[in-house]
Nucleic acid binder design. Structure first.
Lengths: 127, 127
DNA sequence: TCAAAAACAGTAATCATTCCTGTTTTCTGT
DNA sequence: ACAGAAAACAGGAATGATTACTGTTTTTGA
């Protein structure tokens, strides 16, 4: 079965994703790790991210500048994406329950929700 | 300047996007129109969709199965995406104001928000 | 230690999207 | 209506993120 053997590269990839608030892309993880693990391959990063998603250990946040950005914080929270610096920021305490209730009544089964605000972050606003 | 000349193809592309609730992809629009306009090119569809986005006449909803899905209804509303049939459905009356207020206080400038629920639609649930 | 399963590197393939070049259409002023 | 100039376009090539493939290495469990 897939994803059941130990793999130090898989560990390193997950640790990298989980220990940053950058909401990284596959390439970001690869670039971050390639000094530490010179024989790491980008395909391995993609393969493991796909596995983590299947396992529910990471979620996809959004596609920013053509790259998928992921999050190892799978708790229910929203995101803000800055259209200037491409930064992705966490936003907690979303208030979506009225809408969710309505969906439930309509027979829709919600697996996950994705709330994304697009705009200019406070740092970029100053420049 | 761009987007200021009349173009019957551009008109047809916009009309196609605006007259469906399918939240179409570029290829969907192209396939829908190619019988009516045999010399239409896919690049023209992409180019015009990019123009409509710049003009605020369409918005990007989400990437579904690797294809960007757009909406000519630019009013503030959320979407539900079925992970089985890839259908995109409108959801009105989202209740996000508490979160928006907080963002505003933090100096973030919101250009647009994108609220997407992922799950299984009622039709697919029955099968 | 050994064979099967899993994971991997490295590279090729895929596919949505964008770019480029030469042609056609639209616009504007005469 | 006519003649540039600007815009829009077709068709195909290029790009770039992601995925698939193949042969090799690592892990596992007996």
């Amino acid at each position: 079965m897939k994803g059941h053997n130990f793999s130090s590269k898989r560990e390193a990839i997950f640790k990298t994703i989980a220990s940053t608030k950058a909401h990284p892309s596959a390439r970001w993880v690869y670039d971050r790790l390639k000094d530490e693990i010179p024989d790491l391959s980008l395909g391995t990063v993609y393969r493991n991210i796909a596995l983590f998603k299947e396992q529910g250990k990471v979620v996809s946040v959004a596609s920013v500048d053509g790259e998928e950005r992921i999050d190892a914080d799978v708790s229910d929270h929203a995101h803000f994406i800055c259209e200037k610096c491409s930064g992705v920021f966490d936003l907690h305490q979303s208030e979506l329950s009225p809408l969710e209730k309505e969906l439930f009544k309509s027979g829709f089964e919600i697996n996950r929700k994705n709330v994304v605000f697009y705009g200019i972050c406070s740092k970029c606003s100053k420049n």
